[in-house]
Design a protein around this nucleic acid. Structure first.
Lengths: 341, 341
DNA sequence: CTTCTGGATGATTGCGCAATCATTTGTATG
DNA sequence: CATACAAATGATTGCGCAATCATCCAGAAG
């Protein structure tokens, strides 16, 4: 077959052509075509090639609706994240999608806007697509969500958090441990006057509480954190910083619930002519790609969300291979000292 | 029915329960259940309620594979973007998804990494899901992509760009016009020594060429732009800036292919003790949420990608209602002067 | 009282494919 | 040369649903 012929043939529509058309052209039965495409090892090399040629000639594109209905597996994985506007979740999502697509799985994205109710609602329509697995962010869900997932038997990964009572699989880290570690770390660096700037999502607040708890254990009293509502953008960071600076005593270090917030703090400090870290130090959370490139480079907590995404994909692929596999992985985290503390 | 009963009932698995089960419980035929759910107006209020109750009692979740196969519409829209790590595309995607989900459509995300070949490959598997429409970023595609789309008859929106020869629908703006406008604008502000810092993706390069073309029309000779390979992050911005500053003559203004790159330029300028804009001015592209919050606030080109996303959704919904509808919309853009120029 | 109309419901069929079981063919073994 | 056995292929069936056409019934019109 010439290249030209192939090019013209392959363009056939996704609508008309079915397995049967391919079978006719190849001179075999429809089921043999199906096998040639999905289980080439059980078909003779000769017929496999005939089928392959026929597929290209008629421009066949398998109908995965029909395939999924018949085989009860959709090669679809639903991934629910609170937002895609934070590089943390964008990176996680990208890595998970890449890992899954290598194994032939497509991803169905859901954005929960940090709301467990929206998560529940998304889940309702998503389950209608009969995904082979579902990835959730966090371990906080509505009871209905938990029940539906438990009853549906779909493999689940809860990501980006840690709990002793997971629905199924788990890839993440303890936000309480992060809060505690940040407090101890900054204390050991000699800071004594602390301020917190957090966004009021579930996980950030848990880091916040652990942070203040640890401070109190260290014998330090600190003013309450400034708490903003999501999303966490530079704007919130600047506003929060202004609020902190308006207080009676200026803190030595500002601990933020995300790098983005911290970046806003840096911008506000620059605007007000404050030197970082000599006048005021700043610590973020997330180690997004920008963090090391800011001026001054941002001290933060490194999570490697791309790795979390990749490990989510791994966990799922393992489960697909072996029903009994159940990955539960505490990724940990790493404190990164740069110029801002 | 008590709340408790409902809660317990609704949790039934997504696997076992079918329309037929609902029909039995409701005491009607399966097809009546289908109608009660999809076309409530043709069913009497009484049976509609009976069905609704039965659905909740048995925890029925419609199988959209079966529904899609039978009705030939999947309520799925595929959206292909080059990356989700730029807020421009993240916002566009989010807005499009929101607009579509309100009308009951789910989105299938594909990330092309700025590669038309990857786009082609993604399209292959995506067409297997028989989406009701496809959204592509840009107007540059492989010939096979064009042919497949043309032949498949699926509604297509090309977004974020402009062309006289669209595949189908079009929502975007002219990148050439942006390049030209930036050159004229900066010229009018009095700048004469220009430098360009661009990333080598198709659309950025077209803005770049138009920019230099316009400069040359204005009688200005400028050194070649520094061209980095994607992705465009702060790091590339800083590196590019260092390269520019190493040249014989320092430019008065640096024009960047994205706000992120520009942000890197600002960071490098700060690091090197250069005042912006007095020592060197900077202009970005995109007006991401951060741009106005940086220090100094970034002059840029405003695109409102969320609006593009919303209009994409509108264009598709219109098409779904009326086969003949074919939106082609030039969104234009807006130059924004802030502190950095 | 008959005929007509239209609203409400049901029966049948097929969407495109893979699982399952059945059959054919080719090859090795005694 | 008969038997066994595996590899390769085919026929049938059902996945869960909506489109299509058919039926039923109540009330209006004549």
């Amino acid at each position: 077959m010439t290249q030209k012929l192939k090019d013209e043939a392959i363009l056939a529509p996704a609508n008309g052509v079915t397995l049967i058309d391919v079978a006719k052209v190849a001179g075999v039965s429809p089921i043999t075509v199906s096998r040639a495409l999905h289980k080439p090892e059980v078909v003779s090399e000769q017929t496999r090639q005939k089928v392959q040629q026929a597929v290209e000639q008629v421009g066949y594109i398998p109908n995965m609706l029909a395939g999924g209905l018949a085989s009860r597996q959709t090669k679809l994985v639903a991934i629910l994240v609170p937002t895609i506007s934070h590089s943390i979740f964008a990176d996680l999502l990208k890595a998970a999608m890449d890992g899954l697509s290598e194994a032939g799985y497509q991803s169905l994205l859901g954005i929960t806007d940090y709301s467990v109710d929206k998560e529940e609602q998304l889940l309702g329509t998503i389950l209608g697509r009969r995904p082979d697995a579902i990835v959730l962010t966090g371990t906080e869900h509505t009871t209905l969500t938990r029940k539906r997932l438990g009853a549906s038997g779909v493999p689940v990964v809860e990501a980006w958090d840690w709990t002793d009572d997971p629905i199924d699989m788990l890839v993440g880290f303890s936000h309480e441990a992060v809060g505690t570690a940040m407090a101890q770390h900054l204390y050991e660096k000699g800071y004594r006057r602390f301020a917190g700037l957090f966004v009021s999502d579930n996980r950030a607040m848990r880091r916040c509480h652990a942070f203040y708890e640890a401070l109190s254990v260290l014998g330090i009293e600190a003013d309450d954190a400034v708490v903003m509502s999501p999303p966490a953008s530079l704007k919130e960071g600047r506003e929060g910083m202004r609020e902190l600076l308006a207080r009676d005593t200026r803190p030595e270090v500002v601990v933020c619930s995300s790098d983005t917030l911290a970046q806003g703090v840096l911008a506000e400090a620059a605007e007000q002519g404050l030197q970082v870290p000599s006048d005021i130090a700043v610590m973020g959370f997330g180690d997004m790609a920008n963090a090391s490139q800011l001026h001054p480079a941002l001290s933060t907590v490194r999570l490697d969300s791309a790795r979390v995404g990749a490990l989510i994909a791994d966990a799922l692929l393992k489960r697909f291979e072996d029903q009994r596999s159940c990955v539960r992985l505490d990724m940990g985290f790493e404190l990164i000292d740069r110029q801002s503390t």
